[in-house]
Structures are given as C-alpha cells and as structure tokens.
Simulated scan of single mutants.
Amino acid sequence: MKENLSIFDLTGKTALVTGGAAGIGRACATALAMAGADVAIADVNKDLGEKTAASLRELDVKSFFLRCDVSNEEQIQTMISSVVEVFGKLDIAVNNAGIGVISDQDEIFPKNEWDKLMAINLDGLWLCAKYQAQQMIRQTPTEGKIINISSIAGVVSLPMSNGAYDASKSAVIHLTKQLALQWGRFNINVNSISPSYVLTPMMSRTTLKFRQRIRDTTPMGHIQRPEDLYGPILYLASAASDYMTGQNLIVDGGHTLGPWIEPARKREIPPPNQR
C-alpha cells in the first residue's frame, strides 16, 4: 500500500529563499519547489538567480528572481512587498544569505571585515525575519514557517574558520530560539538548520588536503552535498514540523559527534634563560 505523504505536500504554499541563487540556497529552493511550493529567489547575483528561478519553473511551479542585498533594510522591505505582490502571500521563508571567510587569524582580522560579515550574516537575517514575520502576522490565517540557515560553526569551533563567522552563526541559533519564543503566539514556527562543510563554491577555495580531512573525520564518509538538505528543509517547511519550533537541526553527517582533532599551530618560544 502506498504511503500517504501529504503531510509534506507544499502545493499552494509560497516561499522566499534569500541567497537562493546557488549552493545551499538553491538546494533549499529546489526542495520546496519539488514539494509543490511557488518560490521566489532573492540574491545579489542576478545571472545565477535567474537561472535558478528558470530551473524551478521546469518543476511546474511559479518562480521568479529579485535582487536583494540583505544588509540593506530598504531592499529587504521591497523584497517582501514584491513577493506578496506576485504570490499574494508568504508562507515559508528561508534565510540563507550569508558570507564567509577562510581565515583563522583573529589577531589580525580587520574590523571592517567583521562589520561586513555581521551586517549580512546576523543583522541581515534578523531584518529579513522581522519583515517576514510582519507579513505572516497580517495574513489570514496567521501562520508561517521561518527557517534560518546557521552552521555547525555556530555549535563547535572549526579549523579554517574565525571568530566573526562562528559568532554570527552561533548568534543565529540563539536568535532563532528567541524569535520562536515570541512568535509562537502568531502560529509562526522559527527553526534553524546547521549544515556541515557543504560542496558549494566557497568549498572550492579550500585545498584538496583539507577536503580529504573532512571526509576522514565525518562518519558518513563524504563531504556534505547540497541535496543532503532536501529532507531537512522540507520537514521544517511542511506540516510535518507544526509542533516543532525554536530548534536547531544539525545536519552534518556526524561530523560533530566524535573527538576529531586538528593539530594546533605552535609558535616556538625559547626558555626564559635563553630569551
């Protein structure tokens, strides 16, 4: 007998994915469209964004691209208004837009780079969630699903990461909990997903040796693929998770389970009598 999976059906739902042009964002958008949702793609990369929207329309759903820099509050407001103008409502929002840096030298990390990263990864995500919630509260029925994309870097400290990125992702997890606490009374579920190292364009900037180390220290034996997020994003966006809110879903192939060790870099310091 065929199982009834209607609890995961998103037909008739509308969704917005920030940073949706490529990588994790594209994977999230694809999963939502595969389940029947109409999906708006917001990104700063117009060419990739248009291509992603076109690929979603091939799945027999509505999709369009709009350019939005999430560090700009006015552009975020325009983004929400545009989605409602085209789709009539907003049911699901995935806040994925973010940037990262490959640097583990916080002692020389520039303040302006810290500010830029926080403006996008944390401030921008908070502003997106704020205006998404306002729209969901105005709708009838009052309800919605907000999914924030964090990282395992918000849970454990990672080699080749830095304080700014880790702090932003950790803050996203706790912000998710606070917003869930506040907005539950509006029937808005707020959860986050923390992926591991994912095969995205950013990963291509790492060395082959580093990627092999990820495989060696991940119980599932491979680097996370964008499509490994299809199930988690669909679960949190659908009726299957209606009684789940304020949670951080770690999807990392078991990478954070065991005692993997990255040797610390040591600086040779001579004995006191030789200084």
Rank of each mutant, 00 (worst) to 15 (best):
L48A: 14
N95Q: 07
D106M: 15
K46F: 10
S63Q: 05
G49H: 00
Q105M: 13
K89S: 12
E74W: 06
I102S: 14
R57I: 00
E74I: 05
V84M: 09
S71Y: 01
M79W: 01
N95W: 05
D60N: 15
E58W: 05
S63V: 02
S71W: 01
I108W: 12
N112P: 05
I102E: 12
M79T: 03
G49Y: 03
F109E: 07
F109S: 09
I92E: 01
D115V: 08
V94S: 07
A54E: 13
E107G: 15
D104I: 06
L66R: 05
I80S: 00
V39F: 07
K89H: 10
N72W: 00
T78H: 12
F87S: 02
D43T: 02
N112F: 11
L117A: 10
A42F: 02
V39Y: 01
N96P: 06
G88R: 07
A97G: 08
S55L: 06
F65C: 03
M79G: 03
V61K: 07
K46H: 12
E58D: 15
F64P: 01
F87K: 03
V84G: 04
Q75I: 00
N45K: 15
C68F: 00
T52A: 15
N95Y: 05
N112H: 11
T78C: 10
G100D: 10
D60M: 14
N95T: 03
L56E: 03
P110Q: 10
S82V: 01
T52H: 07
T52R: 08
I99A: 14
G49N: 02
V94C: 13
E113V: 09
S71R: 02
I108G: 11
A53Y: 01
T78L: 10
R57M: 11
K111R: 11
D43A: 07
V44W: 11
V44S: 12
G49W: 03
D60L: 15
D115K: 11
T78R: 11
E113F: 11
E113G: 13
I108Q: 10
V84C: 08
V44Y: 09
G100K: 08
K46N: 09
M118V: 13
S82Q: 14
S103H: 13
D104W: 15
M118S: 10
D69F: 04
G88L: 08
A93K: 05
E113H: 12
A40F: 01
W114C: 11
R57L: 05
T52Q: 15
V39G: 03
A53N: 03
I76L: 09
Q75E: 14
K62S: 08
S82P: 00
A97H: 06
E74T: 06
S55T: 01
L90W: 02
D106K: 14
Q105K: 15
E113T: 10
G49D: 02
I76T: 01
E58Y: 06
A53C: 05
R67L: 10
I80E: 00
G49V: 02
V101A: 13
S55Q: 07
T78E: 11
L59H: 04
G100H: 09
K111L: 14
K116W: 11
G98L: 09
K111I: 13
I102K: 14
Q77S: 07
V101N: 14
I99K: 13
S55V: 02
L66S: 04
I108N: 11
V94T: 04
